[in-house]
Structure formats: structure tokens, C-alpha cells
């Protein structure tokens, strides 16, 4: 693995230059929040930020994407085009939790039983440059409880670590190594590695929230009918903010939108919080109330995903904790489940 030292002041410029050559998505200030969005050519991204309000998943698994187009003719339906082909993309500044979310999404969209061509195409063309959390940005961060780490490189092609006066850049994958020329810098020595080890140990110890996420699984296995679910959801507004901001939530709904003779088939984010979630054509919904929907949300993340892929479908970014309008706190919910 190639390791380089990059001058602090040159990083934003390197990314800005890349933005002229390919699609670059990066953290940018937008009014009073930091959003992960596409840079204009030569636009400089934020390099000093906590984390983006939205998760990067929108650029691999868009909120709305066209799967196919068709036209109605006197002879019947005629295909009028397919999905847009993905473009060469660089994700800059993903936090390790978000970089790890791509690994978790891969398990579902790119697996033996099911290959999702739309996701796989975009994923294959995306290079992830992650930025380690030298100091975990929020007290709500709990990546270490769900298998992550604030300075980990899982899911990243390049990992940047702020050593104080310069960045240590680790080019982890062949995709990452393609960026060597663009990043430049000088070869990193043993000292930089030592410095990173110290930073890594310190960063992990600074994670303020611990969640008994692994202990939840055996409880969930036997508590499907527990009275706990009858009260958990009571204050939930069913707004779906948690699932929209979640880096790993991936449920979708497919819908046809037709105007006159032209139709498109679109795939949209769905949310287990919505009343239409899993509603069947007959009108029946096996999850008729917020009780069943909340149970689904928790079960999916902490039980079913473990059953299917041996991984918890949560990266501990804390977005849902911070953004929920009624303070449904997944850290507390999981802690309460373990006590059942």
C-alpha cells in the first residue's frame, strides 16, 4: 500500500482540480448546514467539517432514479430508453462510518442471489476518499459499537488522516492508487505511521456513546411479540427523516409515471416509517401501524441484516439521533431492548 504525506493547504485545491475532470461529490456549506453534494468544476470542498447532514448514499442509490422509459403507440408499448449510465465519480471527505456504509450496501445490492445493475454500475465507477475522524465529531457517534472505528479505512479507496501539520494519505485499493498522480505529496515514513497509531487509539477512546448493538440480536430473535413494541412508537411522527438521512437504509418503491404517451419507471426511496410501506395491491398492509413499522426498522438493522449478511445495518453515525424531531434515540432504544 502506497502512503504519502500531503500538505494541508494543497488538499482542497487537489480536489477542486479533480472536479473539472470527473464528477466529485464532497461536503459543502449550504446555508446553516453542511451537505454532501456535487462540486462545480474547480469548486473547493470543505476539509474542516464535522459530518454532512445527508448521507452519501444518494449518489449510489438516488432518491429517485429512472429504470426505463417507454412510449405508448398504436401497436402497443415501445421501449424508449433505459437507465442513465453512471459516471466516473469521486466521493471526497466521507467519514469512516459513511465509507463503511458502502460495504454494507454492497452486501445487499451486489450479492450472489441478487445483482442490482443500477447500484453496481455506479459503485464500480466511484472512488471513495475518506477522512478519518481524529476527534469524533459528535457525542452521539457510536461507530465503535457497531463494528466501525473513527480512523478505519473499511469501504474507502483512499484514507486521509490529519496528522496536525499535514495529511497522511493511504492509497488502499488499486482504484485509490489511480489518484496518486493527482494527490502528489511525498512518501510517508515510519514516523507518520506511528503518529497515526497514536491518533487512532486516542480517537477510539473519545467515542462518547456506547450501544449494546451486538447484544440486541439474541433478544430480538425471541421478542417479536413483546409488549415493548406497543409503546415504543407512540411519539414517532412517521416522518421518515431517520431513514432518509440514514447511510444504510435502502428500502425502495418502484412506480410508473405516465404523461400522455410517455412513461418512465422510477425507483424511489421508500421508508418503513410511511403508511404506504409494504402496502399490497389488494389494499392490505401486513404492517398496518407504526408499531409494526418501528419493529421492522429495529429488526431489519439489528436482526435480519445480521441473519442475512452477518453485519449490523447501522454504522453509528448518529444522524437519526440528531435529526429526529421527537428525539427517538436509537441508542436508547437498543439499550432498552437489551434490558427486556
Amino acid at each position: 500500500m502506497e502512503k504519502r504525506l500531503i500538505k494541508k493547504e494543497s488538499l482542497a485545491g487537489v480536489i477542486a482540480e479533480l472536479a473539472g475532470k470527473m464528477r466529485v461529490c464532497a461536503p459543502m456549506q449550504a446555508e446553516d448546514q453542511v451537505l454532501f453534494r456535487v462540486l462545480e468544476p474547480s469548486e473547493r470542498p470543505l476539509v474542516d467539517f464535522a459530518n454532512t447532514k445527508n448521507a452519501p448514499k444518494n449518489f449510489l442509490f438516488p432518491r429517485t432514479e429512472t429504470l426505463l422509459k417507454y412510449t405508448r403507440t398504436p401497436k402497443g408499448m415501445v421501449a424508449a430508453g433505459g437507465a442513465e449510465e453512471g459516471m466516473k465519480t469521486l466521493f471526497f471527505g466521507c467519514r469512516p462510518c459513511d465509507a463503511r456504509s458502502f460495504k454494507l450496501l454492497d452486501m445487499l445490492f451486489d450479492q450472489e442471489k441478487y445483482q442490482d445493475p443500477y447500484y453496481i454500475d455506479k459503485r464500480a465507477k466511484t472512488t471513495v476518499v475518506a477522512m478519518a475522524c481524529v476527534h469524533p465529531p459528535y457525542t452521539t457517534c457510536f461507530c465503535t459499537s457497531v463494528g466501525g472505528n473513527p480512523t478505519d479505512s473499511e469501504g474507502a479507496d483512499v484514507l486521509l488522516t490529519d496528522l496536525g501539520d499535514q495529511y497522511l494519505a493511504e492509497f488502499i485499493t488499486p482504484k485509490g492508487e489511480e489518484l496518486l498522480a493527482a494527490f502528489g505529496g511525498t512518501p510517508a515514513g515510519v514516523e507518520a505511521e506511528k503518529a497515526k497509531e497514536g491518533i487512532a487509539a486516542q480517537a477510539s477512546s473519545e467515542i462518547a456513546s456506547t450501544v449494546p448493538a451486538r447484544e440486541a440480536k439474541p433478544v430480538l430473535d425471541v421478542r417479536f411479540e413483546d409488549p415493548f413494541w406497543s409503546t415504543l412508537h407512540q411519539k414517532c411522527l412517521a416522518c421518515g427523516t431517520c431513514t432518509y438521512l440514514c447511510p444504510t437504509c435502502h428500502c425502495f418503491d418502484i412506480s410508473d409515471e405516465v404523461k400522455r404517451n410517455d412513461g418512465i419507471r422510477i425507483r424511489n426511496w421508500d421508508s418503513c416509517m410511511f403508511p404506504l410501506f409494504t402496502k399490497e395491491t389488494s389494499g392490505h398492509n401486513p404492517r398496518p401501524s407504526q408499531k409494526e413499522r418501528w419493529r421492522q426498522r429495529v429488526m431489519h438493522k439489528f436482526r435480519y441484516y445480521v441473519d442475512n449478511f452477518n453485519a449490523i445495518a447501522c454504522v453509528g453515525c448518529g444522524r437519526c439521533v440528531m435529526a429526529c424531531p421527537v428525539n427517538m434515540d436509537i441508542r436508547k432504544i437498543v439499550a432498552d431492548i437489551v434490558k427486556l
Binding site: T140, Q234, K235, V321, M322, V326, N327, D329, R331
Partner: peptide
């Protein structure tokens, strides 16, 4: 009281 500073949350 909510789980985050300066928050309160509906309860039953």
C-alpha cells in the same frame, strides 16, 4: 427530558 441537551420529547 430528551436524550440530547436542551431537548424535551413527548412522553406517555
Amino acid at each position: 427530558a430528551g436524550t440530547l441537551p436542551l431537548t424535551a420529547t413527548p412522553c406517555f
